[in-house]
Amino acid sequence: MFFAGLDIGSTITKIVIKTEDEIWTSVIRPTGAEHRRLAHKLMEEALQKANLTFGQLDYIIATGYGRINVPFADRQVTEISCHMRGINWFFPGVKTIIDIGGQDCKGIKVNNGKLVNFVMNDKCAAGTGRFLEVISEALGVKVEEIGDISLRSTNPAKISSLCTVFAEQEALLRLSEGVSIEDILAGIHRGIATRIYSMVERINIEKEVALTGGGVKNVGLRKALEERIGFPAVVPPEPLITGALGAALFAQEYVGRIDKKELETRKKERRLEAVTFFGEGPTRGQNG
């Protein structure tokens, strides 16, 4: 049997198709504002890569912020539960998950494979991928490189502001004062790590900790977070797909709960069509 998880994030869409035992294939694509509706195309791409037809998928779960109106999904589950499940599959001993996504950042508590608590950042870009993009743009370096650059710092700068707008100004001010880019970036990573730490501390950080989401690909941020937490954390082999993987795992679980006939009827009714979105208005329109 094949189970698919589709994670439509604010900046990246991910698909995982798995069998009972292993990940069969995965696809990761950026989904800018104009591409978000095209998740069905991405599903076609995944199917092609996996050498499968749409009809062969037994159950599909959509997650992520674009999960609500996916016509070809059997069910939707929040990305919070999906990250938890995906990480739990990789690391059954993990109790605390920190997910650093493109537009938000979450802390998740797990107990025996069950979601017990969570916390999300609130109206603030600090601690998200977006924040790092703004800063790297301001400093004229590539966002993929800022982590490595920051590791060369010997004397991290003191950055007092983590408001995206002010931090940008403050970073430029430090630069004009002659502080090196390494030190500024190290200071910024340290500041973000503190912010994320105090947010996740609200649900009580317990060992073992897993870091996931696109933000963890930044080694500087990862190091700063581990320093703040006080012990090393585990990171899945591909931190971008834990949500989609979790969705596929839920798909597998749900299939077990319904009878074969119903499953066949459902499969026939599914249409691989475009996704519609809620709230494309002002509250969500800041996708740059």
Partner: peptide, 15 residues
């Protein structure tokens, strides 16, 4: 004396 920040973070962590 710019020493409030760590306390603010701590309070945030407490909820």
């Amino acid at each position: 004396v710019r020493a409030a920040e760590p306390h603010l973070d701590r309070s945030h962590g407490e909820g």
